[in-house]
Amino acid sequence: MATGGRRGAAAAPLLVAVAALLLGAAGHLYPGEVCPGMDIRNNLTRLHELENCSVIEGHLQILLMFKTRPEDFRDLSFPKLIMITDYLLLFRVYGLESLKDLFPNLTVIRGSRLFFNYALVIFEMVHLKELGLYNLMNITRGSVRIEKNNELCYLATIDWSRILDSVEDNYIVLNKDDNEECGDICPGTAKGKTNCPATVINGQFVERCWTHSHCQKVCPTICKSHGCTAEGLCCHSECLGNCSQPDDPTKCVACRNFYLDGRCVETCPPPYYHFQDWRCVNFSFCQDLHHKCKNSRRQGCHQYVIHNNKCIPECPSGYTMNSSNLLCTPCLGPCPKVCHLLEGEKTIDSVTSAQELRGCTVINGSLIINIRGGNNLAAELEANLGLIEEISGYLKIRRSYALVSLSFFRKLRLIRGETLEIGNYSFYALDNQNLRQLWDWSKHNLTITQGKLFFHYNPKLCLSEIHKMEEVSGTKGRQERNDIALKTNGDQASCENELLKFSYIRTSFDKI
């Protein structure tokens, strides 16, 4: 039985969820670079991206490699990797027998973001014989899940209580170790020597080791999670996991709180800001991140802002960003909400898709409305799209047979046209069989910064309504002859009103 693990408890099935942008060198404390989270699957090609990484700022997932063999891993080693800020997950990587050479110096898994409450997941690794993470000293947050690894031993010899604050939620089941077939031998045991430290858990006094050649490092209890030197002297209180010299914040392997210019500090002093819960960055760093993602459509890219001495992905609820200094300031009234469309555009074809934009005031991208039916549609669209004030790209209304009016965009005031449909149009209306009105132009103002209007096959939309939009939106004169079809717009509506004058002759039985 794995020490510190839980057996036999019912657990939810383990679901495996399925960018080499360097964020800056980590400095003297770390020998390499800070790398983003990685999802490495199918083959070993991307694994080489770990070569210079000291910190993975995010998670590391290595999974679904069915053609790899043990010899493929023999020359692979990433000794610079010290810390993973989120979680480490391995799933069905064939041929991998140990992690001792792959990650010989991995010391800390912070667990800032977890995989279903777990910071370390080893699942269905069919050839893994031992973990071998002999320098792993601290899992700051989260638990361990090690399950269905039929060859995995050296679990009962690990004292997880020396690595985690609590072992109650560890789930370590259905491994070879369960069948008591392992016969784990710690260093020196074969020669009758006791080389590794022994600890007591559940009444068992057991030597602690990761492999037959690597003991588990056990520091004096007084050192807590700070770690200790090879001689057993406690590291500085700002260290986490390990250090090369005692009581020196510049000799830590990793930091308990924050890293700044080669030393570990309790908090980031001005003019620095907390970033990702582990390091200090200056304003320029946060500003660069903001600008890199301002026009990016890459998933996970955030326009970072500053709030409460932190550089964070977005302002919290009730705050909006001051564009001059990136500071989050309290909103006066309802907060603006910028919604970034991942692929640059979004099609609204149902109430469900409209709900995804609920509360958005600025759309960074283009909207395509293609709704053919739905219950209580006008009210639903207004509830979900009615706060949109600005669209950076274009607005396209296409084959939306259920629409009679666009009044559900009740606050839309600006279409920038930074991206144009077919390279020309910022407003595009095609084949809307029941569209009769755009907006009530006596109450609604709309500016279209650039781009043209396109109207074709809107049989109940009168040309007068379209011409009014040209005047109000500032697009009059931009359109070419064929942009607004004269014969297919309003051709099934009563669009022309003329005053009919009647004269009559009164007659009676005795007068003409």
Rank of each mutant, 00 (worst) to 15 (best):
L99G: 02
R256I: 09
D277N: 14
R263I: 12
Y259M: 12
L102Q: 01
Y87R: 00
P197F: 04
N42G: 04
C315V: 11
V281L: 03
I56H: 00
Y134P: 09
R162T: 06
Q303W: 05
C293F: 03
F116S: 11
K193M: 13
I62T: 00
Q245E: 12
L133S: 07
V200Q: 10
I201E: 13
A254D: 15
R256F: 08
D248W: 03
K80Q: 07
L131K: 00
Y94F: 06
A119L: 00
L29F: 02
L174W: 05
I109E: 00
P249L: 07
E33Y: 00
E51V: 07
E147R: 02
D277T: 05
D261L: 08
G188T: 06
C264F: 01
C280R: 00
N202C: 06
C286T: 13
D169K: 07
M83C: 09
L44Q: 03
C196L: 12
F66R: 01
P104K: 02
H307R: 06
L88M: 13
S143A: 09
C315K: 01
M125V: 04
N308D: 10
H236V: 02
D288L: 13
I306Q: 08
G58V: 00
T211N: 12
L120G: 00
N170Y: 03
V200I: 10
N138A: 06
R297I: 08
M38H: 13
N295A: 05
M65Q: 07
P70S: 04
Y134K: 00
C328R: 02
S225A: 09
C286M: 00
P249C: 03
L332N: 15
K67R: 13
F275T: 03
F103T: 01
E231N: 06
K67L: 06
L102H: 00
H28R: 03
E124W: 02
G227T: 09
P271Y: 14
I122R: 00
T329N: 12
C234E: 02
C196E: 13
L63G: 13
E151L: 12
P197M: 09
S143R: 09
C53D: 00
I306M: 04
A119G: 11
D177R: 12
V144A: 05
G188Q: 11
Y319V: 04
S77M: 15
D248N: 08
M65A: 13
C235D: 00
K251A: 00
F115R: 06
M83D: 02
A198P: 12
C209L: 02
Q245F: 04
I109D: 00
Y304A: 04
N242H: 12
W278S: 08
N105M: 04
D177F: 12
C215K: 07
Y171L: 08
C255V: 00
N308W: 14
L64W: 01
C252S: 00
I109C: 00
F103H: 00
C53I: 01
I139E: 01
V305A: 12
L96V: 09
D72V: 07
C315A: 06
H226S: 04
L106Y: 00
V281W: 01
P270T: 10
H48Y: 05
A254L: 15
L88H: 00
P197G: 03
I122K: 00
D184N: 08
I222V: 13
D72M: 15
M83N: 00
F275M: 05
L233S: 13
L63A: 08
C53Q: 00
F258M: 04
R263A: 11
L120F: 00
V108L: 06
V200T: 10
C328G: 02
P197W: 06
A230T: 06
I40F: 07
C286I: 13
C219K: 03
P269A: 11
K176G: 13
N43Y: 07
L90S: 02
F115S: 09
E124L: 02
Y87A: 02
P187F: 09
R263T: 11
I306T: 07
Y118N: 04
Q287G: 15
W160N: 01
Q204W: 04
C335G: 06
E97G: 10
Q245H: 12
H274T: 14
Q245A: 08
C335R: 04
I201T: 06
C335K: 01
M65F: 09
R92L: 15
L76K: 15
K193L: 04
Q276L: 09
D184P: 04
V173R: 11
S225P: 11
H291R: 09
D184Q: 04
Y154N: 09
K310V: 05
Q299E: 06
R110Y: 03
H59I: 05
E147Q: 12
D165L: 10
I109L: 08
T68F: 07
N117G: 13
C223R: 02
S237Y: 08
D169F: 08
